[in-house]
Computed example of a mutant assay.
Amino acid sequence: MSEAPSDPIFSELRPRLVRLAYRMLGSVADAEDVVQETWLRWLATDRSSVREPAAFLRTVVTRLCLNELKSARRRRESYVGSWLPEPIFDPEDGDAGDDITMPLMLALERLSPLERAAFLLHDVFGMNFDEISSAIGREAAACRKLASRARAHVAEARPRFAVGREQGLKLAAAFFTASRTGDMASLQALLSEDVVVYADGGGKVATSQRPHIGLSATMRLHEQLARIFRAQPSQLIHYAVIDGLPGFVTIEGDNVVQTTALQIEQDKVVTIYCTRNPDKLQHVIGAMTH
């Protein structure tokens, strides 16, 4: 981002604009591109005519994202295997700025672009419906209905029993140790009966193309993986909160960087999200090399 240091308004708003674009698109790279284009449009704008820069910039980002979603959805229709959002790390102070988690990101994928925009702008970023009306080009009453419909769709994806950061990372560490050492008894004790495993390799690296559903299928998978881990040990990079979920970053034996995020309810892992697609991990790899 070739942002001018003499523009404090955009500098201050940029993190929230990136977060909005990422929540809309599920892609770090696409979000950065959208915010870069927003910056260029901001440079070409007569600032004296803009009464509320934050509302103006959110509107630009939203409209660019709505355009991008049309092509993004076409790309995802031909995606190989499970599609997961690009992983992002929550700040260590625990303040991610919103409560959107990986399950909610996936729930948002099932909404129409306008429903997604109305929900995020109102429920997550606190815009009123008059602002949203201007941003997405619909009447305020229609925006209210879009947000309400979206809210009903995503309600089931909200965590019913949220786990604290410290406890979540403690369970992530226990999961890592059990899965990598082949301690199947300890691993099984961490998993719920209806646990599901999603792995996103995008057809670029080896991974299961279909989810593993249920405790039996998940245990069979990890018994197979344990043999691989014994021959090719994982290298733990660090534990982290990934899209609101506790997890960890590893370099696996096949020299693939992987993020693993765990959805935990009542101290049991209910969903495992593994991202291995190197195209989605460039920002992770970049951070590891600095």
Rank of each mutant, 00 (worst) to 15 (best):
T207A: 15
R138Y: 11
E77N: 11
I237T: 07
N128P: 08
D7H: 06
L187E: 02
L262C: 04
G168W: 00
V28W: 02
R19E: 09
D93Y: 05
P103C: 08
V28H: 04
P159V: 02
R14S: 09
A157H: 07
G94K: 06
D99R: 14
R180P: 00
A117H: 02
A96S: 15
Q266V: 12
Q235P: 01
Y198H: 13
A199H: 03
D7W: 00
L104T: 08
D194A: 14
A107E: 09
M288F: 12
A147L: 03
D254A: 15
A189T: 03
E223W: 00
T181F: 00
A206W: 03
R110V: 04
V241F: 00
A172M: 00
H212I: 06
T218M: 03
R276D: 03
T177I: 03
T250Y: 00
R144T: 11
A140M: 02
D123W: 10
F119E: 04
V205Q: 09
Q224W: 01
D254H: 13
L57W: 03
E37M: 04
A152V: 14
P53I: 11
G126F: 13
E92M: 08
D30N: 09
T62I: 10
S192Y: 01
R19D: 13
M102R: 02
S82D: 12
G244E: 06
P8V: 11
P278M: 05
